[in-house]
Simulated scan of single mutants.
Amino acid sequence: MTIRYSIFLLAFLILSCKDKPKPAVVSVPRPTVSTDGVRITFPDAAMIRAFATQPAKPEAIRTDFAAPGHVAAMVLRSSESPAERLVLFDDPDLSDNYTAILQHRINIQTQRGNLDRVKDLQAHGAASGKEVIEAQTQLANEQAAIISDEATLKLAGFDPEALRRAQPNTILVVCEIPENQLGSIKKGLPCTLSFASFPNEKFTGRIDDVNDFVDNTTRQIKLRIAVSNPDGRLKAGMFATVQFGVTEGKFLTISRDAVVTVQGQDYVFVKTGPQAVERRSVQLGQQRDDRIVVLNGLRENESVVVSNVLQLKGLSFGY
């Protein structure tokens, strides 16, 4: 009886297992990422809800405005010609340009005198029209050559005429600031500089010149800052941090939690549609509490992701 009952129970269990339906395998939808990793599209609105956003908004904040720079030149008095300035650049090519400019000036004066002399000779029948044309050509060549060398110095942040008037025993620091900070900067503005070689000292300077153009790639503009250097401690090539004082105004800010950094570049993720996110490269300013200033890369009221940002980083960059 016991054996018969056991057989019956085993048969019942086998039949029960056959009749029990297997659970269906459900595939979990995944976000779609563009080839370059810039755009991420989610399959449904429920999935994107995990990535909360906040608008990028302007705030009235006080911030220290600083920029990196370097001592690009030293100005000394020439021992041979006290009226002239001896300028020592950290870039030998700029030294060549400045020397060429000085030589062109001498040549232009010489060629102008020569042209006046030849014209006078022609007026008295002692020179031909061909000689006048040759003298005019030589003068024009020198004038064209000096324009080329002056343009090279301008691109590096130097005004050749200002160099000739610069005070001896002065260093000239060149730094770059973002285009959108130009409104708070003007010629003659005082600033404070610190140097890695003298970490416990502050040096006072003033903005000597603001360049005439903005770099098309970096959207930065060069400033030249003059700093008195009577004891000669500051040398060409030294690195500096230039502090422009405290400025107050409206700056576009985002939460610090929104920022990820990859290989030295800062990024945020912007919600561009109901189920779409876009990676955006940004240039950041100073941080105040949990907010950070955005100098470039965002527009006001764009929706910036502030939660689960590391997941988006992994999707975007593939890790």
Rank of each mutant, 00 (worst) to 15 (best):
A11W: 14
M47V: 09
R280L: 07
L102A: 14
K22M: 07
I108D: 03
N296A: 13
N107H: 11
V87R: 08
L163I: 03
D44K: 03
S16C: 08
L9P: 02
A156V: 03
G205R: 14
V87H: 01
F51R: 09
A226N: 08
V294Y: 04
L163H: 02
D289Q: 09
A166M: 11
P21L: 13
S228Q: 07
V33Y: 11
D149W: 01
T217Q: 06
K235S: 09
R291S: 00
G183V: 06
D159T: 05
L139H: 02
V33N: 11
K235M: 09
R112M: 00
V262E: 09
S95D: 14
A162C: 06
P199D: 00
T152N: 14
V242Y: 11
Q265G: 10
D149F: 04
Q54H: 10
E142D: 10
E150T: 12
T63W: 08
I48N: 03
R117P: 05
V210Q: 05
G188T: 02
T204A: 15
N169I: 00
V293H: 06
F12E: 08
H104T: 13
G273V: 03
Q181A: 07
D90M: 02
Q143L: 12
N114W: 07
A166L: 05
A100F: 08
T204N: 06
V268T: 00
R4K: 15
N114T: 04
A258F: 05
T253E: 06
V71H: 01
L86E: 11
D209R: 10
G69A: 01
K18M: 12
I106Y: 14
F89K: 01
S34M: 01
P23Q: 01
F12T: 10
L94I: 10
F239E: 11
T272I: 14
R224A: 15
A46H: 13
F317L: 06
M47Y: 01
S27K: 02
L284R: 09
I61T: 02
S148M: 14
E179C: 06
M1H: 07
Q220N: 12
C191R: 05
P23F: 11
E59M: 01
V259Q: 05
A140E: 12
S16M: 08
E302D: 10
I3R: 08
L153E: 14
V118L: 05
V270K: 15
P190T: 03
I177D: 05
V118G: 05
I146S: 13
Q109E: 13
L102F: 07
